[in-house]
């Protein structure tokens, strides 16, 4: 029987209330959102918070997808299912729907949240790879105000984030530009599992040349990995199979996978190359199809 260690349960009724509890309880407390990462870790004693602050009642305050002209703002308590079902989000960034379809299963997606996924800071986690690909920023709030950090700043290492004691992630912001599309490619051992490797891509075209492109990889390093070298290699070029091949090779060179139970480092490098190619190819195809 797997159960968490003894804990004190608190329930927050607003963001301010949650921040007050966090400030009072310090490092002995963890926020409990969907619970589908934290509770399994607590069952295995990989996490042992003394206090859990349930923030599910904050869904009204932090469960939203707001489309603005220059950015999309997504509340940290937005659940996987809501991200999957949002047509507006899928239209702007189809990478979200690609990724959501392969995250866990529909029942788990009813509970898990975007903020919880990012705060888990697992290098194999799909939405972290999506947010890395899209150059998202994270809004962290405490009792005195807010700060905004990049994904690179947000994830400090495996299972470690920039969220300090007394703080919480409240919103994820994704910059919006015209003329682009995106895609997500994942290989896993079985449906709904963590990625062996996955690759996200976002491409923006100016006429027939690539104005900008971004690639993000999961499960090939201590954090999900952005690849500026690939962006540089793609900018100003016309999309072609040769170009995707070169980008894939660069992705494989610029990542740092480890051999583990999910596969060897060599196999993961191969996947990084192939999935980068596929994600770029599909992003460009979607632009051309007007998707």
């Amino acid at each position: 029987m797997q159960v968490p260690a003894p804990l004190e349960y608190e329930r927050a009724t607003s963001v301010d209330h949650a921040l007050g509890l966090l400030e009072r309880l310090g490092s002995s407390a963890r926020l409990l959102a969907g619970g589908h990462s934290l509770l399994p870790m607590m069952k295995l004693r990989l996490a042992n918070p003394e206090y859990l602050i349930d923030i599910n009642d904050l869904h009204g305050e932090l469960g939203y997808i707001r489309m603005e002209p220059a950015q999309i703002r997504i509340g940290a308590m937005t659940r996987h299912r809501e991200l999957l079902e949002s047509d507006a989000l899928a239209e702007a960034f189809p990478i979200f729907r690609d990724a959501e379809r392969v995250i866990a299963d529909p029942v788990v997606r009813n509970r898990g949240t975007l903020g919880g996924s990012l705060c888990q800071a697992d290098p194999s986690e799909d939405l972290s790879a999506v947010c890395t690909t899209l150059g998202a920023s994270c809004v962290i709030r405490n009792r005195t105000g807010e700060r905004v950090v990049t994904m690179e700043e947000f994830h400090r290492g495996p299972y470690e984030t920039a969220v300090e004691d007394g703080e919480m992630l409240v919103e994820i912001r994704i910059p919006v530009r015209g003329g682009g599309s995106s895609a997500y490619e994942k290989v896993e051992r079985r449906a709904g599992d963590w990625a062996i490797v996955s690759a996200g891509a976002a491409v923006w075209l100016d006429g027939e040349v690539i104005a900008d492109a971004r690639v993000g990889l999961a499960a090939v390093g201590p954090n999900t990995t952005g690849l500026p070298a690939v962006s540089e290699a793609l900018r100003g070029k016309r999309p072609s199979e040769d170009l995707y091949e070169r980008a894939g090779a660069l992705a494989a060179e610029n990542c740092n996978p480890a051999t583990d139970m999910r596969g060897s480092a060599d196999y993961k490098r191969h996947l990084a190359k192939e999935l980068t190619r596929r994600a770029l190819r599909r992003s460009v195809a979607r632009i051309n199809e007007g998707v």
Binding site: L32, G35, L39, P40, P106, V108
Partner: peptide
């Protein structure tokens, strides 16, 4: 016990959830 098998699915506010991964207090 690990939110994989789904035999513990119940509804919480009308949505199916895996009750091995929800605290009763929640």
């Amino acid at each position: 016990d690990t939110s994989n098998c789904g035999t513990c699915v119940v509804w919480l506010d009308g949505e199916p959830v895996k009750s091995c991964t929800v605290l009763a207090a929640m």
